[in-house]
């Protein structure tokens, strides 16, 4: 009896707050879950497909659906340094450490983020490059690092590792959407997490996460693992190869 009472109470609160009681769910699929690095690898593209599934009884919403797809690469420590003038020289003086920041980050939406939700909500829910590169545990207002964080995002965008695409999600039908994700060749190996969030009228209705990985295969894989697991052998082999090439060149080009 008591349990039933609690359930009724919870349902009552839900109605009072006007919360959508899980009316929508997101179904997502990736075109591939693994990007294989081969010797002619120059980056790759994959596509996120998604479907908004509505429960039959819910009435149609007044606001259109919005989708935010955030892809986060493996986290690393990133250090941002700033050059300052010291006498006649320009040298690195200040630096800030950004622990556990994604080395790869893309945010794709179907329209500009500012039209989907408020700045306040974007900060809270980590939507957009500036908010998404923060770790979940980091305070939204990191003190005194503004210029460094802006520089981090700017430089990573220049390198093609960070991207914000406000036309990156396309609705194929009112409930079916797709979002292409470009993975540049410089993106590191490791596990990438994709977070898909459905918004309507500025409120998050449903979210779904999935992931893919970037791995070295074939010769790339064997060489990289040899370098790490048998460093002495690898080093000796490289040195021997170098000397062999040097010797070969003199015999091939020898004329006298």
């Amino acid at each position: 009896m008591k349990r039933l009472g609690n359930a009724l109470l919870a349902a009552g609160f839900g109605l009072l707050a006007g919360l959508p009681a899980k009316a929508e769910t997101l179904i997502a699929a990736l075109s591939t879950h693994q990007i294989a690095i081969t010797s002619n690898y120059t980056g790759d593209q994959l596509t996120v497909f998604g479907l908004v599934e509505r429960e039959g009884r819910t009435a149609a919403r007044a606001d259109p659906y919005d989708i935010v797809v955030t892809v986060r690469g493996p986290p690393r420590m990133l250090i941002v340094r700033e050059k300052e003038r010291v006498g006649p020289l320009w040298i690195n003086r200040q630096q800030r450490r950004f622990p556990e920041r994604p080395v790869f980050l893309t945010v794709s939406t179907n329209r500009p983020i500012s039209e989907i939700l408020s700045d306040e909500a974007a900060r809270r829910e980590r939507v957009g490059l500036a908010n998404a590169q923060r770790t979940a545990a980091t305070n939204a207002f990191e003190f005194g690092i503004g210029p460094y964080r802006d520089a981090l995002i700017r430089i990573m965008e220049d390198k093609g590792l960070y991207a914000e695409n406000e036309r990156g999600v396309t609705f194929l039908s009112p409930t079916l959407f797709s979002a292409p994700i470009n993975v540049p060749a410089t993106a590191p190996t490791g596990s990438y997490e994709i977070e898909i969030v459905l918004y309507a009228g500025g409120a998050a209705l449903a979210r779904q996460t999935t992931n893919f990985e970037v791995v070295k295969t074939g010769m790339e894989q064997s060489l990289a693992s040899a370098a790490h697991e048998r460093p002495l052998l690898y080093g000796l082999a490289t040195a021997a190869l170098a000397l062999l090439f040097g010797w070969l060149a003199t015999t091939i080009f020898r004329r006298d």
């Binding site: 050059k83 006649p88 320009w90 520089a151």
Partner: peptide
């Protein structure tokens, strides 16, 4: 000696 175009740099 010349002022850099981008005073910031990111290192891993």
């Amino acid at each position: 000696f010349l002022p850099p175009a981008e005073p910031f740099s990111v290192v891993m």
